[in-house]
């Protein structure tokens, strides 16, 4: 077995910081970040479900926590992350069919994903406040 400590120090290829930031690149990074956020956010879903299953008192406490300003802020962010990741995922599924790689399309997809996720999040919260 080769000793890895004897490995020659080779120059590394440049990482993202030397490239000019572009929308499509930012969207790729945001897709990963929203995915990771949703990952940890499932703890909120689990906590809420467990509270509901545990009974009226624990459910009331959970509702109070989530209904606080900070709770609502987190849930608003979570809504956006969910919708953004979903629209970004649809974009990826379209790409999987070999379509949408053109210079114009990929920019349009990026803008539709970003704009769509923001508009849908705001709309959803307006509906949520209306039906409440």
């Amino acid at each position: 077995m080769a000793d890895s400590r004897l490995r020659i120090e080779r120059p590394l290829s440049p990482h993202i910081q030397i490239y000019k930031p572009m929308l499509t690149m930012t969207m790729s990074i945001v897709h990963r970040i929203t995915g990771a956020a949703l990952y940890f956010g499932t703890l909120i879903l689990a906590a809420w479900l467990i509270a509901a299953a545990s009974g009226q008192a624990s459910f009331a406490t959970m509702q109070a926590v989530l209904g606080s300003f900070l709770g609502r802020l987190v849930l608003f962010g979570y809504t956006w992350a969910l919708l953004h990741h979903m629209l970004g995922g649809i974009r990826h599924l379209v790409w999987d069919t070999g379509r949408g790689f053109g210079a114009v399309e990929r920019e349009l997809f990026a803008k539709l994903t970003l704009g769509g996720s923001i508009i849908l999040t705001v709309l959803l919260w307006i509906v949520a406040y209306a039906v409440r």
Binding site: A52, G55, Q56, F59, A60, L82, M86, G89, I90, H92, L93, L124, V127, A128, V131, R132
Partner: peptide, 23 residues
Amino acid sequence: ALAQIPLTLAFVVVLLSIIGKGH
């Protein structure tokens, strides 16, 4: 991912039907 699209939409509808309701 494909399955999550309709399921997420269904989940959102469930949440909207639950908002503001008691235990």
